[in-house]
Design a binder for these strands. Structure first.
Lengths: 184, 184
DNA sequence: TAGAGTGTTCAGTAATTTCTGAAACCTTAA
DNA sequence: TTAAGGTTTCAGAAATTACTGAACACTCTA
C-alpha cells in the first residue's frame, strides 16, 4: 500500500512525535497511518506500508489496544483482523490524556500519600513533607480538572470557548451569579 | 549530603517518573532533590548525593534551565553556583505544561498547516486532509484552553473548583446568564 | 489429520539514549 | 602570569529500548 507524499509526511511526523506523546516511533507511525486511512488495515498492510516486521506490528497493536486507541474489525469470509481507530479524534485524544494521567500522576499521588503518613524525624524532613503536601494538592487539583474536561463533549467545550476570553471570563460569571443570589 | 529514607524514596521516585514527565531519570532525580531541599545546592552536592558524575550534573542543569525550572543563587565570597527551584510548585508545574505543549503540539500544528494548504490529489488524500483538519482544530482548542488555565493563579483555580462540580457546572452557569439576558 | 493462513512470542541484535571522566575552558586572586 | 577553584564539553562506554525473524500457536477446511 503506497502512501502519497502528503500522507507519508503526516505518518512520518507522527513517528517523530511518537515518543513525546508517550509511545515510540513505530507506534506513533501506526496511529498516524490508521487515523488518516479511511478503511481499516490488516497487520500486513501496516507491516508493508511502514516497512517494519510483522512481529513488531503485532506488539504495536497490543500496545495500542492497551491505550484503547484502536478496535478490531472483521469482514465476513475473511480470517484476517482489520484495525481502525476506536472513535473520533476527540475520543482518541481523550484516551491518551487519561492514560497519561494514570501513568504520570497516579503513581506519584500514591507515593506521596504513603510518605506523608509518617512523622517527620527532623527539620529537613519537616520541610520535605510540606513540599510533598503541596505537590499532592497540585496533582489532585489537576486530576479533578482533567476529569471534568474529559467528560465534556467536544461540542460543549467549543461552546464554552466561544463564550469569550475563556476560563478567565468564567470567574466573572461566577461573580455575577453570586451577586444575583445576594440581590434576591 | 546524606538523604533520609523518606527523602530518598521521593527522589528515587522522581527518577523513575522522570522519563514520563518529559526528561530522563537523572534529571528527574535532580528536580526532586532540589524541590524537597530547603536550601540551594551546588553541582557537587548534587553529584555526590545522587552518585552521578560531575559532567552529568552539568548537562542536567543546562537541561533544567532550558525548562526554566531552576535558578542560580550566589553567596557572597563563594564562587560556586547554587541551584534552587525557580518558583513555587505551581510555577514549576506550569512551566512543565507549557514546555511540553510546545514540544508535543506546536510542531504538529505547524506540519498540519503546511500539508493542509495543498490541494488533495485524490479521494484518499481528501479524507486524510479532513482528518488533519480535525486534528488541527483539536490541538488549537487544547492550546487555547491550556493558555487560559496556565495564566490563572492557583487561588483562582481553587476558588473555581470549590464552586461545585467543576466545569460541568460552569455550563449551567452560562445558561443561567444567557437566560437572564433574554428575560431582560 | 494435514496443511494453509493468520496471529503471538521472545531470544538475540540493532539502534538510541544516557553517563562518565578527562581535557578544555573561564574567572579571580596573588 | 600562574595557579586555584570552579564549570562545560564531548568522545567513547554503558545502559536502555526497540526491532527482527524464526519458532510456536491457533483455527479453519478438506
Amino acid at each position: 500500500m503506497r502512501m502519497t507524499s502528503k500522507i507519508e509526511a503526516f505518518v512520518m511526523h507522527c513517528g517523530e512525535m511518537g515518543s513525546r506523546w508517550g509511545f515510540n516511533r513505530t507506534i506513533g507511525q501506526m496511529v498516524g497511518l490508521l487515523v488518516i486511512n479511511e478503511s481499516p488495515l490488516t497487520a500486513n498492510d501496516i507491516s508493508e506500508t511502514l516497512n517494519i516486521s510483522r512481529g513488531n506490528v503485532s506488539m504495536g497493536i497490543k500496545e495500542l489496544q492497551s491505550w484503547r486507541l484502536i478496535k478490531t474489525h472483521h469482514i465476513p469470509g475473511d480470517r484476517k483482523d482489520y484495525y481502525a481507530p476506536d472513535g473520533s479524534i476527540w475520543d482518541l485524544a481523550t484516551r491518551v490524556f487519561e492514560e497519561r494521567r494514570k501513568r504520570e500522576m497516579d503513581p506519584t499521588l500514591s507515593l506521596l500519600r504513603t510518605v506523608m503518613l509518617e512523622e517527620p524525624a527532623n527539620q529537613q524532613e519537616q520541610f520535605a513533607q510540606e513540599k510533598m503536601f503541596e505537590i499532592h494538592e497540585l496533582l489532585e487539583t489537576v486530576t479533578v480538572w482533567a476529569n471534568e474536561l474529559q467528560t465534556m463533549k467536544p461540542d460543549n467545550l467549543k461552546t464554552l470557548m466561544k463564550l469569550g476570553a475563556g476560563v478567565g471570563k468564567v470567574l466573572d460569571m461566577k461573580d455575577k451569579i453570586l451577586n444575583n443570589k445576594v440581590a434576591k
